[in-house]
Design a protein around this nucleic acid. Structure first.
Lengths: 234, 234
DNA sequence: GTCGGGTTTTGATGCATATCAAAAGATAGT
DNA sequence: ACTATCTTTTGATATGCATCAAAACCCGAC
């Protein structure tokens, strides 16, 4: 079952938009194969040789790095239409682990293909640069989040970010089914799982959200935004 | 005073290494002009339109982002041979501030030039990708640092990183003159200036370092490494 | 040299979050 | 359906770092 980029409904997310049908056909060449990853399995692992970027077609991933003593730091959660593997370019080997948090399918894009077609299509080249820049900016804001905000602000920002990305993919603007555990959220946000749980309970008590296990209903998005940014400006 | 990349002693740091004399001449075209930035001045500011990347020729910069309520998070310190401005690519405007911490000179590389020459020279293309990937990896490790380590571990890691980069530029392996304040270090590492100061004092009391204002002498690098990574493995 | 403003150090105290612990709830395998 | 295991919640306590405060120190301006 071959699904070409040109006919993929995630095209606008992982490919440049301003592409003619003609060019789009050529662009299909970036994707060599597709690959299924079962829940809990690794797509790639820290230290593994880097060959390809991966575009997520379906499913949900987390990426993480570890301290020598085995403490894990989740560095990101990725969903359909997002690209993972950029960390591997610099040293030709991956520097983090990517684990599927639910059964997933990815498009394997050999980086040699990406670079070759990038030289031919400036719009693709620009797109690749933007994707990498976006990741740099995202991580900047994560540093701000972890370094400067308190636990409840972090969780509020996390939920808003998640729901915004899901909404961009056609899901509800008010309902989330979390794919990750409290511990993984905590690792991502630089806090312990108990603190995550307490923050959930607090928001729930205040009527801002509704929590039932991994289901989260957002009852008062404005309140969440106010927690992240109390002044309301910007 | 025109200094071409081909005759710049920082060439190995900001340009691809495997370049013939012929190609190197063409590569000089990436740099449009040079620009002086006085200590305390901004090279670019959050929200400003993005036109160019900047290669640092001399001097020392910090980049930072801010919360709406004005709290600053330093996202990096950059020295000679390093590239700044990558954050601006994604949305055609800068998303952080870059301030010179000492009088500096930068090479202005219009991004249009970079992209055009990248298409022509695969080795430059690869280089640009690596620089962006390196920044992504660096920020991953900063998330690990801020999210998982305690204050003394963070400062130890910071000092080791700084001295390693300075050493790569021909400076001492054991002596640093800090260009940034305790507050800026603290912001970068997600802690308060008092905590930074206390950690300095502690290391000094233990004979691991020698501190006199912004001068730091590293007396026992092994001890610093052990603080970052107690198990000693890896 | 002296004054004034900024930076750094050090001490005392408080608070947010980590840690420890245990129960409740969900999930998967037999 | 039932048990074993994992996840989540909640409570009690501990602690690392922030906060508040003040003194010491440094640097540049005059």
């Amino acid at each position: 079952m071959k699904v070409a980029c040109s006919s993929c409904n995630l095209r606008e997310l992982c490919m440049p938009i301003s592409f003619g049908a003609e060019d789009m056909k050529r662009l299909d060449e970036v994707v060599a194969t597709r690959h299924h990853v079962k829940q809990g399995e690794l797509l790639f692992r820290d230290g593994e040789p880097f060959k390809s970027l991966f575009a997520i077609r379906t499913g949900f991933f987390k990426t993480s790095v570890s301290t020598p003593d085995g403490h894990e730091q989740v560095t990101g959660f990725q969903m359909a239409g997002e690209i993972i593997g950029l960390d591997g370019i610099v040293s030709d080997q991956h520097s983090c682990n990517a684990v599927a948090l639910e059964d997933a399918e990815v498009c394997v894009m050999p980086f040699a293909n990406v670079e070759e077609l990038s030289r031919e299509f400036p719009v693709l080249q620009r797109h690749v640069h933007k994707i990498m820049s976006r990741e740099i900016v995202r991580e900047n804001s994560m540093m701000l989040l972890i370094g400067n905000m308190r636990s409840e602000e972090r969780l509020a920002a996390f939920l808003l970010n998640l729901v915004q990305r899901l909404h961009a993919r056609g899901f509800s603007q008010t309902e989330i089914v979390l794919r990750m555990s409290r511990e993984e959220i905590g690792s991502y946000l630089g806090m312990k799982l108990e603190t995550v749980s307490r923050a959930f309970s607090k928001f729930s008590d205040e009527g801002i959200i509704e929590v039932k296990q991994r289901y989260v209903g957002i009852l008062n998005a404005a309140a969440l935004k106010k927690i992240v940014n109390p002044t309301g400006c910007v």
